[in-house]
Design a binder for these strands. Sequence first.
DNA 1: CCCGAATGGTTGACGTATCAACTAACGTCG
DNA 2: CGACGTTAGTTGATACGTCAACCATTCGGG
Lengths: 157, 157
Amino acid sequence: MSGTKGKRMRLHAPASATPKAQDVATAVLRTADLLRRRVAAALAPHGITSQQYNVLRILRGAHPGSLPTLEVGARMIEQTPGVTRLLDRLEAMGFVHRERGVDDRRLVECQITEAGLTLLARLDAPIDEVNRHAVHALGPAERRSLVRLLELVREGG
Amino acid sequence: MSGTKGKRMRLHAPASATPKAQDVATAVLRTADLLRRRVAAALAPHGITSQQYNVLRILRGAHPGSLPTLEVGARMIEQTPGVTRLLDRLEAMGFVHRERGVDDRRLVECQITEAGLTLLARLDAPIDEVNRHAVHALGPAERRSLVRLLELVREGG
DNA sequence: CCCGAATGGTTGACGTATCAACTAACGTCG
DNA sequence: CGACGTTAGTTGATACGTCAACCATTCGGG
């Protein structure tokens, strides 16, 4: 702890005082939750979740190549061991194809299927619309600023 | 869509071009995930999850009064029907007391117990430390700015 | 006073996160 | 080549988010 930081009480809080660390964290969490929910709502009618969508996009990025399971996990927003089950469902739905690596048989190579690509193609526009709508209140400078501040939080921590 | 927005390709992308809507959304989501994980890690040794912690803080805010179940849900970052089960576990652990409302018997009034208050008291410092650490790279003006930008995203959406 | 709509909550089903334990396949060293 | 450590991945347990169906209570009319 950095000692007696003082914090004299403000008797009638000014509209926009410097927010406490916790308030900043809460703002980030609340905003993320809102975004997540909107994406989920846009995806729901198509029968996939935002995590599944995320995985499919990662695999599309590698198409026509493939990626080992854990590499997919490492590229997602939230990490690892859930990836197996995520891929299980995507494979069951026919959007992903998996097979043991030939070179190194520990690896499981994951590849998006044609059906997966087709699905993504239908999803791109709606999702982009959601994201665009979310930041429509921000001008270019504000977007840059927001992204930079968030980077500082992630890296400076 | 807003037509031919152009987007001439940038042959060697400048370090900090205006990010696309999706990049902004991703930055928010990634940052939130990082924060969530750190809080969870700080809470884990004490045997409660971040959602449970969240509920306890809300109930502490109402102490020594109580709140109906759905009111607790409404104040959380993520909403509703999970609240019942969350409260089930907290009650089982002895941190929350519930009873049917006397006035309106549909309501279930939830109140934090002494044990709950004691637990929170132990948790406050570590969690505050996590949050403080997270934003330590931001100056006062930057915190204000970040919070404001996030508000714009939430409200302007 | 009883019907039916509205309100407050709970429950079931499914997807997922997280941790820990476990299997399988390399690789290396002796 | 066989023991051992490492790496890739799977699986089981517990907690949570979300949706939809459901029960109980209250309330407004007739």
